[in-house]
């Protein structure tokens, strides 16, 4: 049975997998005030959490929530996607990959609590240590605001997940998982848009992270290598990991009704479902329907 119903942050940070023109329109109305209204509406209609990437605007939003009277930061569960990849892609465009790596290493070592680990990474010449500290560094400002108990999972952004899988870096993935669990005392997961390939790879390595976040929708949009294989992978991985379904509306290309009908067949394999909107009325309407349809056994 689905435990968490999450509001996703894509419309808040100018991301739309339907069209950039839609994302720009949504970003225009996405003031902190409006985002809080959306969160409140979602919460009042059954949402239980917020899943977001480490985009600067989310820091601003969470800081504002902390000051809110009618919305308490403890009211929500949080699933944090690390890092906000586009920001690093832009930096790589500007300065090149080696310069970006150097900059990241310098940033990591700046903080006293990470310095010793960074030195260990340098002495052992172990990039895995730097990768784990990179995740920690991105997470750090958010953990100063959020109650640790309410942070349900730290999820590795799909760009890193797919890179790890494509280069067969199981030790790296396990290292980050271990670091998040043991040093940060948080649960760890991955996000992927290639669930079929990723599931096979995890199975081959006999390792499953606690959480897997992946798109799931009736169109098979962003479900690789195919809709059928993705569904099979979700069902099988659901026995080992907690699956969080995202993009259930195929970026707005399917109706909520059709999406919910489809999810009926998948819900036993799912732990959480996420949907995003920038409109309070839609948050109210959608979460009422989603929780009603998917909470029922």
């Amino acid at each position: 049975m689905i435990k968490d119903f999450l509001l996703g942050d894509n419309p808040f940070i100018g991301v739309s997998h339907l069209a950039q023109e839609k994302a720009r329109e949504e970003a225009k109305v996405s003031t902190v005030k409006n985002k809080i209204k959306v969160l409140k509406a979602a919460l009042n209609s059954g949402a239980t959490g917020y899943t977001f990437s480490t985009h600067d605007s989310n820091l601003e939003l969470l800081a504002a929530i902390k000051k809110e009277e009618n919305l308490h930061i403890e009211d929500l569960n949080y699933y944090i996607l690390v890092p906000y990849a586009q920001s690093y892609i832009r930096q790589a465009n500007k300065a090149g990959a080696p310069a970006l790596i150097q900059k990241i290493i310098a940033e990591i070592a700046k903080h006293p609590s990470r310095l010793i680990h960074a030195l260990k990474g340098a002495i052992l010449v172990d990039p895995k240590i730097f990768a784990s500290l990179f995740v920690e560094m991105n997470l750090s400002p958010y953990m100063k605001i959020l109650p640790p108990k309410k942070v349900k999972a730290v999820l590795l952004h799909e760009v890193l997940t797919e890179l790890i899988v494509s280069f067969d870096l199981i030790d790296l993935l396990k290292h980050i998982d271990h670091h998040v669990h043991n040093r940060l005392n948080l649960s760890f997961g991955i996000e992927t848009r290639n669930i079929g390939q990723v599931y096979n790879w995890l199975r081959k390595n006999n390792y499953f992270p606690e959480y897997i976040m992946t798109p799931l929708n009736p169109l098979g949009y962003q479900t690789a290598p195919s809709k059928t294989q993705a569904e099979k992978a979700v069902k099988e991985a659901g026995n080992r990991s907690k699956i969080i379904a995202i993009n259930i509306l195929a970026s707005g290309a399917v109706s909520l009704e059709d999406a919910l009908k489809y999810m009926q067949n998948m819900k036993n394999s799912l732990y959480a479902v996420a949907v995003g909107t920038s409109k309070p009325w839609r948050a109210k309407e959608n979460f009422a329907k989603i929780t009603n349809a998917l909470r029922r056994c």
Binding site: L18, A19, V159, E162, N194, L219, A224, G252
Partner: peptide
């Protein structure tokens, strides 16, 4: 017609 209408089951890798 938007992206989700075009890219269904294709391509086999999403990156």
């Amino acid at each position: 017609r938007y992206r989700p209408h075009y890219y269904q089951g294709i391509p086999q890798v999403n990156l």
